[in-house]
Simulated assay, not measured.
Amino acid sequence: MTTTSNPGLEDTSTLRVPRRSVGQSLLSSGTVLALVVLIIFFFAMRPDVFLSFTNVRNILYQVAILAIIAGAQTLVMVVGDFDLSVAATSALAGATSAALMLGGTPTGVAILAGLAVGLLVGLVNGLLIAYLNLSAFVATLATLTSVTGLAYLVTQGTTLFNLPADFNNLGQGRILQIPLPVFFAIGVLVVLWFVLKYTTLGRRWYATGGNVEVSRLSGVNVRRARLLAFTVAGVVSAFGGILLAARLGSASAVQGSDNLLFSVAAVFLGMTVVRSGAANIVGTVVGVAIIGVMSNGLNILGVNSYVQQVVTGLIIIAAVTLSSLKTRER
């Protein structure tokens, strides 16, 4: 006697969602887990210092500018590109504002001029990449070189200081004992998060980064989307540079140059936080937190600065590797 199977049961089994492996689960939560492990480790090593209010405030203060620059880097990586000029743009913007203020220009006008510099650099990047079809790596590398040269011209190869007190207060002032740059960073990141998550422009940026050809066929103006991403990134980077000059009370041509590598590492680390494996603001914040906690913890433990550079390089390698694995999972 032949036994027939029940088609209904077979259909139900095929619709069953496959369970995620332990490796996939760890990959998705690995970045957040790494942050928690770092916090626990440094707290265990220095429980009297690490989680004190003063030290937590110092960590937030240290990473505020990096968070802004990383936010700019996130935008261009959302559309599938890359910007090597974010740190150089921030330095030029800070130097431009500082030079104008030392020349007698009112603080507000000097800040707007610095932001305009960032907008111009971002616009040039966008035109080169979106409309002239240059590689993002080549185009922004060229921009990095040119912008750094311009920053040296603006500063005449020196450090500009004796900036106005009202300008310095933007980077050194406090509200409820929390440094102002922390509030500025939170504000910038919240705006970027909202734009990426809830606006048509944000959806177009993600669509462009996901598949350029499909986006074009769907009616998205891909060139304009990429142009806008680089332009906004330039303005955000400039704001970070101006804030850094206010925080330090000075400006130079290479100020904040480390923020380029740190921003890249933060974005790549953040890409593992979401299942899609795409660049995202929440993940970038987690990546920035990891870098800030690690740097602060190693300083508290008295680790040599050269060793910290080695650790930073390893973090970048790990970030890129995790991001690649996440892409394969998709």
Rank of each mutant, 00 (worst) to 15 (best):
I69G: 02
G118Y: 06
G283H: 10
G210K: 06
I39V: 15
E213K: 04
L102I: 09
Q172K: 13
A64S: 15
V254H: 01
I111M: 12
F82Y: 13
V267K: 01
L66E: 05
I129T: 07
L38Y: 04
S21K: 06
L170D: 01
A136K: 04
S237G: 03
S263M: 01
T96Y: 02
D11T: 12
Y198F: 15
I129D: 05
L84Q: 03
S146R: 02
I291E: 04
V63Y: 01
N133L: 08
Y152T: 10
V310I: 15
G23N: 12
T12A: 14
V22Q: 09
V282I: 15
I175L: 15
L243Y: 06
A265E: 06
G219V: 09
G30N: 10
L248R: 09
I291H: 01
L102N: 11
I65W: 04
G103P: 13
A238W: 02
V190T: 10
D48W: 05
G202W: 13
N304K: 06
S29I: 14
V121S: 03
S252W: 02
G8R: 05
V190A: 14
I291F: 07
T155L: 03
V36C: 08
L153V: 09
L35C: 08
L75G: 03
V282Q: 12
V285R: 01
A139K: 04
V147F: 06
L163V: 07
N169W: 15
T155E: 07
V307S: 05
V212P: 00
I317D: 11
S85N: 06
V78E: 05
L51S: 11
L301N: 09
